[in-house]
Design a protein around this nucleic acid. Structure first.
Length: 295
DNA sequence: AGGTGTCAAGCGTCC
DNA sequence: GGACGCTTGACACCT
């Protein structure tokens, strides 16, 4: 069981997601941003290693506008060695890596143009993981997508579109239950049809489940991860008190976390903590798991 | 220097 | 049919 946090570290004073406005694009600006983002990613990895945090989600902003037509700078060639060096550290130290494209990535949109752009965005994510030289335990998590007034047809379209994607993308995908449309049960159907594993999100399940107990849904999702996919990945978070439904908590609620761990008793998986204070809560979660002899 | 409105992209909900 | 929230950080322009 590895513990991680997504994208940013709040204590080391750099960001791996430097970007700029589209109209400010220039090859030099892109090169400079990527160089600094990779530099910061390296520092985050060092921090994580020093602190026993072996799961990390790489930000989609690592290469700004990577899938946009404006981006013609050959960043893959330019930074091939830097990526290889970072990936070598990840592999040597047994770090688990994920990526999570944002809500504009929808392979099941009826609009072929949106599908085309989504495929380009996924190709960028797959290219990053390939440049790092990571095996297929490094995954790209996406949601089921839109419903477009007919969930059955939209789920079918997800599966049909999946078949059209490049193998470099298909082999790295995982499908995650979302907070109001595609539940774990829906994702299990997608998994059955496509063979991609289901990434269980505990908070989304709480907001959009079909009444399955936490432990049941977690086990159903976990069972979809094959031998080459690595341990099941799981996203964990809780509701921010007194705020709109769906907002992530500011810091970890160890009592709730203990309940979550208890629900997964006997199962091994890697946990991504989607909590706003990032590494701080991840460190607290790790200490809790050490204290209770889980890791 | 600090504050704030805005940013590539899409969906669903609410009015 | 249009505004807004999602969820959120960083830019870029303003004072």
């Amino acid at each position: 069981m590895k513990i991680g946090y997504p994208c940013l570290n709040r204590s080391i004073g750099c960001t791996p997601s430097r970007t700029f406005r589209l109209r400010s694009y220039s090859p030099a600006r892109l090169e400079e941003s990527v160089q600094q983002n990779l530099e910061c990613l390296g520092r985050i990895l060092e921090f994580n290693l020093a602190n026993g945090l072996l799961f990390f989600r790489i930000t989609s902003d690592l290469v700004p506008f990577a899938s946009h037509p404006v981006c013609t700078f050959p960043w893959q060639e330019e930074f091939v060695e830097r990526f290889a060096a970072l990936g070598s550290v990840m592999r040597r130290k047994g770090m688990r890596i994920s990526m999570h494209p944002d809500q504009f990535t929808l392979i099941n949109s009826p609009d072929p143009d949106i599908f085309r752009r989504s495929a380009a965005e996924l190709a960028y994510h797959a290219a990053v993981l390939d440049l790092l030289g990571l095996d297929l335990t490094a995954r790209i998590q996406i949601h089921g997508g839109g419903v477009y007034g007919d969930k059955k047809a939209s789920l079918e379209r997800f599966c049909a579109r999946f078949e059209q994607l490049d193998e470099k993308i298909r082999r790295r995908l995982a499908v995650e239950n979302d907070d109001h449309q595609y539940s774990v049960a829906d994702c299990l159907q997608i998994s059955k049809r496509t063979g991609i594993p289901v990434l269980f999100d505990s908070f989304h399940h709480q907001l959009n489940g079909n009444g399955e107990a936490l432990g049941t849904a977690l086990r159903q999702a976990a069972a979809t991860w094959g031998e080459n996919d690595g341990l099941p990945m799981v996203d964990y978070s809780t509701q921010k008190k007194g705020e709109r439904k769906g907002r992530h908590a500011e810091s970890i609620d160890l009592k709730d976390f203990a309940g979550f761990i208890a629900a997964g008793e006997g199962l091994d998986f890697d946990i991504m903590l989607e909590i706003k204070d990032k590494e701080r809560s991840a460190l607290r979660a790790r200490r809790f798991l050490i204290k209770t002899n889980r890791i």
